[in-house]
Amino acid sequence: MRVSVIIAAWNAEAYIAEAIESVLGQTMPPDEVIVIDDGSTDGTRGILDRFGDRIIALTQENCGQAIAVNKGTAMARGALIGFCDADDLWTPRKLEMQLASLERDNTVEAVFGKVQQFVSPEVPEAQRARFKPDVEIMQGELKQCMLIRRVALERIGLFDETLPATFFIAWLGRAKQSGLKLAHVDDIVVRRRLHPGNGGRTNTAAQNLQTLMALRQAIKAQRPRE
């Protein structure tokens, strides 16, 4: 089955090349990698251009990650869709393991795996304790850990663009309510980089508010219609 991978990038010049290489370097490489540059003002676009026709790179005005991811997903031609964040890394066998899981059971619609969190090497020693995760390795029900069948994504719908910080939390809640059949591979599929630019660590108030909004939407969706 054809696999498309979507990456949204905003001012990601420090990490984007490594992220893309981790996707292209899979033991079972994807068929297309779509990178949406969300109005970066640094050298992100120049780095994307270096990959030539190994990726599909587009630039849009800065609209937020949810809009960029939805745009890339709409362009994708694969029957399977994966996502990578611009500062994270896929482990080399991510697609191989997840494809095997989908092939073993054709009723499974989306496959996740474990995530390993790590403090980015360039973070100064004096700040590293601040970013050290409470749990290093955990089940990763995160966008970048997921490989999903396109038909399931189309059935559930794309990401809520009004929740730029927590759109995947809201989407996953909606997906589970709709009966999305999930599976997990018992291995690390993503290495999540922790650094000062992580939105969830630098803008916690906005993320907390949007998480509350997402939960309210989920509760409202569960209520019977009058």
Rank of each mutant, 00 (worst) to 15 (best):
R174N: 04
I169R: 06
L212E: 13
R50K: 10
A19I: 09
R77Q: 12
A206C: 01
A66D: 14
F112H: 13
A57P: 04
L209V: 03
D105W: 05
T204V: 14
E61R: 02
D87R: 00
L153T: 06
P224L: 04
K220A: 15
Q222S: 12
A100Q: 14
C84L: 10
T91H: 11
A183V: 08
G25R: 00
R192W: 05
F83Y: 15
V3S: 11
S178K: 14
E61A: 10
E18L: 13
E61H: 13
E226M: 03
K143Q: 09
E32V: 08
S40E: 10
I47S: 00
A9S: 07
V35H: 07
A76R: 02
A86M: 03
R174I: 00
I137M: 05
M1E: 09
F167E: 15
L153K: 08
M213V: 07
L142H: 11
F131P: 03
L48P: 02
M75R: 14
G82L: 06
E32G: 11
L99S: 00
L153W: 09
T73D: 06
V23Q: 01
P121T: 04
G64S: 06
I47F: 10
G197I: 03
G199E: 13
N198D: 10
E109S: 05
L147Q: 07
G78P: 09
F131T: 02
A170H: 09
I7W: 03
F131G: 07
F131A: 10
R192H: 14
K220M: 13
S40F: 04
D49A: 03
I156Q: 01
L89S: 01
E13Q: 13
D31L: 06
G179R: 08
E13C: 01
P30A: 12
L209S: 10
E161S: 14
M146P: 07
A76F: 00
F51E: 11
A66R: 06
I67M: 04
T44D: 07
W171D: 13
D186Q: 06
G46R: 14
R225P: 05
T107L: 05
R2A: 09
Q60L: 12
N11F: 09
K220R: 07
T59N: 09
Q217Y: 01
K176R: 15
R192A: 14
A126Q: 08
V111A: 12
Q65N: 07
A9L: 08
T91A: 03
A205G: 04
I169F: 13
V189S: 11
A17Q: 10
M75C: 08
M97N: 12
E32D: 07
R104H: 05
I6D: 02
G25W: 03
T211Y: 03
G72Y: 07
E18A: 15
A165Y: 15
I156V: 15
A76P: 00
P30C: 09
E136V: 02
Y15I: 00
Y15N: 15
S101A: 08
P121F: 07
Q144H: 04
E136P: 01
T204E: 05
S4A: 13
A68S: 15
G72R: 00
A152N: 09
R155E: 12
E125R: 06
V115Y: 03
I219M: 07
G113K: 00
V111K: 11
R54Q: 15
A206K: 09
L215S: 00
